[in-house]
Amino acid sequence: MTTENNGRDAFSAYHPVTLFLYFCTVLFFSMFFLHPVLLAISLASVFLYSVLLSGRKAVRFNLLWMLPVTLLIALVNPLLNHSGATILLYVNDNPITLESTVFGLLSAAAFVSVVIGFSCFNVVMTSDKLMYLFGRMIPVLSLMFSMTLRLVPRYKAQIRKISEAQKCIGCDVSQGGIFQRIRNGVHIVSILITWALENAVETADSMKARGFGLKGRTTFSIYSWKRRDKTLLAVQLALLAVVFAGMGMGAFETACFPFVRIAGLSGKSVAFFAAYALFCLLPAIVDGKEYFVWNSLKSAG
């Protein structure tokens, strides 16, 4: 909700299941694995995707906010964390170790990829997609989620109405001394609560009258499985199988303490990283393909 999809992104038009799988995987790996190659792949691809989604705004956000945060985490960690065996230098008798410096850099990169990844998630996984995904598994909780989302703007509008009415009789939060204002504010809130609760009971009765909780109800959705979704899911699952095989074989193992130990690159592990990179770059690949097809169609016509 913070940023808007500008319509250039074709990947977000795919089926919610494939989108959810994409974000779960990328966020899981960048949250919990600290292998530098893996992190570089995640960071580069979420950065690319955020630019594809929100254009220049994303670049500005990433550079303005994410760069300082990265530097801060990377700097603070070696100053606070003195474990590790290789001492680089002393600051006020506190050892600065190579291990915690490396860990600081890696966890900063992980933090930033997770934040940028979630900023893409917020644009792509809109509430209706989440409703669709979880509506069948947990219907009551999904309904509650969607109702709460709906009630927020409704209550906002109601608060405005109440405070305008109160203004006419000199009881708005903008009128009177400081204590009077607080009292007026509390009064407005309690009016809202009374209204909201009465309204809730009415809504509940109306829901009950229309068969809430009865069996055999169906739900509407605008998402359908197309052939391209099947293809995408198959590709995703194949790549994930390779990535998880790599995880099982320890290709992504990284430990910073007491010594820095990072699983090296070999012919096999390059294949695992390539699979992960392909998976992370799926949005860019899909968008690139769409762009290419669109332009070639335009020039042909």
Binding site: V140, L151, Y155, V201, A204, D205
Partner: peptide
């Protein structure tokens, strides 16, 4: 917590009361 609430098949009034309070705190 969440699943036991789901399986209890709560009444409409309970559901909407919880939603209203959550919406008020979000506001």
């Amino acid at each position: 917590f969440l699943l036991s609430f789901e399986h209890r098949r709560p009444k409409a009034r309970e559901v909407i009361l919880i939603c209203s309070l959550s919406a008020i705190s979000v506001i």
